[in-house]
């Protein structure tokens, strides 16, 4: 018993931290979101999502997050398959190289994309040099998708790599042995066995993509507003904490839905890496 108490004591700093910086702020979001400026209970801030500009920004955020997630899957799956087939000393080096960008500051990486995508940026300079037409990318939804995919791709690669790496090579061999060609083996064995990784990757890319306001602000200029930007503006520019909190609650709903879906599909937690 005494030992048990000591262990519980060790977790005290985290509990204090969680209470101070997670639970209390969360309760405050709910408080502000469900009250008006006079402190009276209201659903108005939550229902404000129905206003055209708010709804549009949520819709656009959902669409862009979805596109980014799909692109991430399409890029990450073959990559993860190649990584997991690299047995031996190169394997860790290659995985390391793919994780390396994550060690750089998020803002710096996104700023780098700014310079790449600008009208007089690196990409257009190269295109000009090759006598090809300039592309207008910066401040468009495409630029935001570029930024999201670049920033969140590792979060898709890692769970996929993890789950593919765990598939026993003899299970693949068994499918081949039973008459399946490589394509049939992939569709019937590899893909279904990697579902937990796919779900985990989707959550880890979709949720941050949906909520980001930094990527959209830096690569979308101030022209394209995602729901994250709207919320941020309500807090910082308009000082309307109630509306900001109300919209946050709506956003949280979507996050909770995607979390539940991931929990259902990934019962064993096989896809978890972080």
């Amino acid at each position: 018993m005494k030992n048990n108490k000591a262990v519980k004591l060790l977790s005290a700093p985290y509990i204090v931290w969680a209470a101070a910086f997670i639970i209390i702020p969360l309760l405050m979001v709910f408080y502000y979101g469900l009250t008006n400026r006079d402190g009276q209970f209201t659903f108005a801030n939550v229902l404000a999502i129905q206003q055209t500009e708010h709804f549009k920004s949520l819709y656009l955020a959902l669409i862009l997050a979805l596109i980014s997630t799909v692109i991430c899957i399409l890029l990450a799956y073959p990559l993860a398959m190649i990584l997991s087939s690299l047995k031996g000393k190169n394997e860790h080096l290659v995985v390391f190289i793919f994780i390396l960008p994550m060690w750089m500051n998020f803002l710096l990486r996104t700023m780098a994309w700014q310079t790449l995508l600008e009208n007089d940026g690196v990409i257009n300079t190269v295109l000009q040099f090759l006598h090809m037409p300039k592309m207008h990318i910066i401040n468009t939804p495409s630029a935001i998708v570029f930024g999201m995919v670049y920033n969140f791709l590792p979060f898709m690669v890692l769970p996929l790599y993890n789950v593919l790496n765990k598939i026993d090579i003899n299970v693949i061999n068994a499918a081949r042995d039973l008459g399946a060609n490589p394509f049939q083996t992939f569709i019937r064995i590899t893909l279904p066995l990697s579902v937990p990784g796919i779900i985990s990757g989707i959550t880890m890319v979709f949720v941050p993509s949906l909520t980001t306001f930094v990527v959209s602000e830096m690569l979308g200029g101030s022209k394209i507003l995602l729901i994250g930007n709207v919320i941020e503006q309500e807090f910082t520019q308009n000082s309307n904490w109630n509306l900001g909190s109300g919209l946050s609650i709506v956003l949280m709903l979507f996050i909770i839905i995607s979390m539940i879906m991931s929990a259902i599909f990934d019962k064993n937690g096989e896809g978890n890496t972080l």
Binding site: N170, V171, N173, A174, A175, I189, P192, L193
Partner: peptide, 13 residues
């Protein structure tokens, strides 16, 4: 010919 693998290698799904 068919093979019975060392650790069964059943399709768990």
């Amino acid at each position: 010919l068919n093979t019975v693998f060392q650790k069964y290698a059943l399709f768990t799904h």
